Simulated scan of single mutants.
Amino acid sequence: MRCPCGCGDTIELLLVAEAKPRWDITIDRQYRPSIVPSVWRSSGCKAHFWISKGRVHWCS
């Protein structure tokens, strides 16, 4: 996915059970994704955010 901060970087999140770190994604009835845990970029723009029900929630 593209970083929601607007920097244009591509973010790859590992979803397979054996990966570390890894994320879980769920899709609700309206096809909105939620991703846990939060995404915290350690380089580049250093964005830190959650995606819940298709919306980006920024961590402060």
Rank of each mutant, 00 (worst) to 15 (best):
Y31P: 05
I51R: 04
P37W: 02
G44S: 02
H57C: 03
V39T: 02
S60M: 13
W40F: 15
I27L: 08
Y31E: 12
S38Y: 12
K20C: 12
E18R: 11
V56A: 05
Q30A: 13
H48C: 03
G44I: 03
V56N: 00
K20A: 13
G54Y: 06
T10H: 12
A17D: 11
V16W: 12
A17N: 09
A17I: 09
C45L: 01
C3Q: 07
P4L: 09
K46L: 13
I11W: 06
C3T: 05
V39E: 00
G54D: 01
V56E: 02
C7W: 00
R41C: 13
T26C: 01
I11P: 09
V36R: 10
R41D: 00
D9Q: 08
E18M: 12
S60P: 12
I25R: 02
R41S: 05
S34Q: 04
T10R: 13
K20M: 11
I11K: 00
Y31I: 11
I11E: 03
A17R: 11
A19L: 07
A47G: 03
I35G: 00
A19V: 05
I51G: 01
S52Q: 14
K20L: 12
S34E: 02
W40G: 10
G6K: 03
S52I: 11
A19D: 10
D28L: 06
V16S: 13
V16D: 15
C7L: 05
R2M: 12
W58E: 04
D28N: 12
C5A: 09
L15Q: 05
A19M: 07
G54R: 04
D24S: 02
R29S: 15
L13R: 00
I51M: 01
